[in-house]
Computed example of a mutant assay.
Amino acid sequence: MNGGLAAQHGRLQDRVDSVMLIAMRADVRAIHTVAGDGRADWQTRTFVREARRLTLGCAAGLSAVLDRHRPGTDPYGHEVCRACGTSACSTLKAIADVFAAYAVRPAAVDRAEAWRRADAYLGSRGVPLVIEEFAEGFVARPVPGGNGLLVVDRATGALTRWPDLPTAELVERYRHYLRGAP
C-alpha cells in the first residue's frame, strides 16, 4: 500500500469498517431462510448460518488490532506505529497483504450510508438532509440550504464540502475534482 503509516492504517480501517457494516446490514431472517432451504450440503448451510456472526467477530478483532497498531509520532516527530515503534509496521503490512490476496475492498456507499456519514459530519444536529444520487456519489443538502453542502463519494465514502450549487453544476465540478482538473 502506498502512502505513510497513517494513510495505510486509514485504508485498512475503512476496509474493516466496510466488512462490519455489510455484516451488520445483512438480514438475519433471510440468512436463516437460505441456510434452511435444504438445497445445500450441511457444511454450506452451517457456514451461511454462522457467516454474519463470524464476520462481525473477525472484523471486531481486526479493529482491535488496528486500534493497537495505529500511527503516532516518536520523540523526534517521525511517524511510527504506536505498538511496534517502527515506521514500517509489519502487522499492518500483513493485514494489507491478506486483504489484497482476498480482494477485500471497501463496499460502495449506498444512500443510507451517505446519509449516515453526512449526518455524523454535521454533528447529528437534527438538521434534515436531502440525499441526491449521481454516478460518482451522493449530494447531501441540509434543509434549509444556504450553508453549502456535502458530497459523499460512492467508492470511498470520503466527504467533501461544496458551495450550494445546482445539482448538475455540482456533479460536473465534482467530476473535474476527481480527475484532478483545475
Rank of each mutant, 00 (worst) to 15 (best):
A140M: 10
M20W: 05
A181K: 13
A26M: 14
A88P: 02
R154N: 02
L150I: 05
A135N: 01
D17S: 11
H69K: 15
A7V: 07
T86C: 10
G137R: 05
P71K: 08
G145H: 04
L56N: 03
F138L: 02
R105H: 15
G180P: 13
A155S: 10
S18H: 11
I31W: 02
R25D: 13
G36M: 06
G10S: 13
A94I: 03
W42Y: 06
A135R: 08
V109P: 01
D41H: 02
P166K: 04
A107N: 06
R52S: 06
D119K: 00
R49A: 15
R25E: 14
V171C: 12
D17E: 06
E172P: 04
I131K: 04
L159I: 09
G148W: 02
A114L: 10
V139L: 12
R15A: 15
D67K: 08
P144A: 07
R68L: 11
R52T: 03
P71V: 08
R70W: 00
A60F: 10
C84M: 09
P163K: 08
E169W: 00
S18F: 08
L170W: 10
G145A: 14
L165R: 11
A26P: 01
D110A: 12
V19I: 14
T86V: 12
A140G: 11
V139C: 09
G145K: 04
A158V: 07
A60M: 13
A140I: 02
C84F: 00
I22A: 14
D41Y: 04
V48L: 15
A155E: 12
P106T: 08
C81F: 00
Y174G: 09
G145W: 02
F134D: 04
R70P: 00
Y102A: 07
A107L: 01
F99G: 08
T46D: 14
A107V: 01
Q8P: 05
I22T: 08
F138W: 10
I22C: 02
F134S: 09
A64R: 13
W42C: 03
Q43D: 06
A155Y: 01
R11W: 00
A112H: 10
Y177N: 04
D41N: 15
R161S: 09
R25V: 01
G145C: 02
G4F: 02
I131S: 08
S124T: 01
S124V: 00
A40V: 15
C58A: 09
L149S: 01
G10Q: 13
V19N: 05
N2C: 00
V127P: 01
T73S: 07
Y121Q: 04
G85A: 10
M1I: 10
Q43L: 10
R39F: 13
F47V: 06
A23W: 08
A107T: 02
D74E: 11
M24V: 11
C81V: 07
